[in-house]
Computed example of a mutant assay.
Amino acid sequence: MMTIPEISQKLFAAKKAKGLSFADLESVLGRDEVWIAALFYRQASASEEEATKLLEALGLSLDLVPELVSSTVKGLGPIVPTDPLVYRFYEIMQVYGMPMKEVIHEKFGDGIMSAIDFTLDIEKVEDPKGDRVLVTMNGKFLPYKKW
């Protein structure tokens, strides 16, 4: 089971108490809702201005600013995720990871998609057969350097 940092617990509790969504916080911070959610989980770092705006919007102490601006250790760790939604993405990579790699190499050459110069968008697509989740990953292609 993933351990949620104490600051994350405070952020989520304040967000819930205020009745805010990540989309609401998007207008406060001028950042995408997925990036803000990553900040909540400490998978991203805020500037001092962003941290201050977020904490003020949530009614939390500005004493938390240094923790929100600090560099973080990213990732889930060396575990197979057990949360069903997170596991589905792990499963997608198990099944489609190598095919995606082959198609990317065919189109771009030998390299990777950046997870640093990267955006991730999540949209709800209404469908009479059941609503759909549209996930768009957009990363800069980085060719492997030859030397």
Results as ranks from 00 to 15, higher is better:
residue 3 T to L: 14
residue 144 Y to F: 12
residue 110 D to A: 13
residue 10 K to R: 15
residue 132 R to P: 01
residue 33 E to Y: 13
residue 50 E to L: 03
residue 63 D to M: 07
residue 27 S to P: 01
residue 131 D to K: 03
residue 98 M to G: 12
residue 143 P to Y: 00
residue 145 K to W: 08
residue 33 E to P: 05
residue 104 I to S: 02
residue 42 R to W: 06
residue 43 Q to H: 09
residue 142 L to S: 09
residue 99 P to K: 08
residue 20 L to T: 02
residue 73 V to G: 09
residue 122 I to L: 15
residue 126 E to K: 11
residue 143 P to M: 01
residue 40 F to K: 02
residue 5 P to W: 00
residue 117 D to N: 12
residue 80 V to S: 09
residue 136 T to C: 01
residue 11 L to P: 00
residue 76 L to F: 09
residue 113 M to R: 13
residue 82 T to D: 10
residue 141 F to C: 04
residue 19 G to H: 02
residue 14 A to N: 02
residue 41 Y to C: 10
residue 101 K to V: 10
residue 78 P to K: 15
residue 85 L to K: 15
residue 46 A to M: 05
residue 145 K to A: 12
residue 10 K to Y: 07
residue 27 S to K: 15
residue 56 E to K: 15
residue 51 A to R: 06
residue 81 P to H: 04
residue 83 D to L: 02
residue 10 K to T: 07
residue 44 A to F: 05
residue 49 E to P: 03
residue 53 K to R: 13
residue 39 L to E: 05
residue 128 P to I: 05
residue 1 M to H: 13
residue 44 A to R: 14
residue 99 P to N: 06
residue 14 A to K: 05
residue 46 A to P: 06
residue 104 I to C: 09
residue 129 K to T: 05
residue 82 T to Q: 14
residue 41 Y to Q: 14
residue 119 T to E: 14
residue 45 S to N: 11
residue 140 K to N: 04
residue 139 G to H: 00
residue 123 E to T: 11
residue 2 M to W: 09
residue 116 I to L: 12
residue 83 D to W: 02
residue 84 P to V: 07
residue 3 T to P: 06
residue 11 L to S: 02
residue 21 S to M: 01
residue 34 V to A: 10
residue 59 G to M: 06
residue 23 A to F: 10
residue 36 I to D: 03
residue 71 S to I: 10
residue 139 G to V: 02
residue 135 V to G: 04
residue 29 L to I: 03
residue 96 Y to H: 13
residue 136 T to W: 03
residue 145 K to V: 12
residue 41 Y to W: 15
residue 63 D to K: 13
residue 92 I to P: 01
residue 1 M to A: 14
residue 131 D to R: 01
residue 146 K to Y: 08
residue 71 S to A: 15
residue 78 P to M: 14
residue 104 I to F: 11
residue 89 F to V: 13
residue 89 F to R: 08
residue 66 P to F: 05
residue 139 G to K: 00
residue 54 L to M: 10
residue 8 S to A: 08
residue 63 D to L: 09
residue 10 K to E: 12
residue 43 Q to L: 07
residue 33 E to W: 07
residue 85 L to Y: 12
residue 48 E to G: 07
residue 62 L to W: 04
residue 107 K to M: 13
residue 137 M to T: 10
residue 33 E to A: 14
residue 137 M to G: 12
residue 3 T to C: 10
residue 49 E to D: 15
residue 111 G to W: 01
residue 118 F to E: 09
residue 86 V to C: 03
residue 111 G to A: 07
residue 73 V to M: 08
residue 55 L to R: 01
residue 122 I to C: 11
residue 109 G to T: 04
residue 127 D to W: 00
residue 72 T to S: 11
residue 117 D to K: 11
residue 36 I to S: 01
residue 115 A to W: 08
residue 29 L to T: 01
residue 74 K to I: 10
residue 7 I to S: 03
residue 121 D to C: 04
residue 11 L to G: 00
residue 147 W to K: 15
residue 29 L to D: 03
residue 123 E to N: 08
residue 43 Q to S: 07
residue 95 V to G: 02
residue 68 L to W: 03
residue 48 E to M: 08
residue 3 T to I: 14
residue 62 L to Y: 04
residue 7 I to Y: 02
residue 137 M to D: 07
residue 51 A to P: 00
residue 9 Q to S: 10
residue 13 A to P: 02
residue 18 K to A: 05
residue 64 L to V: 08
residue 100 M to F: 12
residue 133 V to R: 08
residue 66 P to H: 07
residue 91 E to V: 04
residue 40 F to E: 04
residue 107 K to F: 06
residue 13 A to N: 07
residue 142 L to P: 01
residue 126 E to A: 06
residue 133 V to Q: 08
residue 124 K to Y: 03
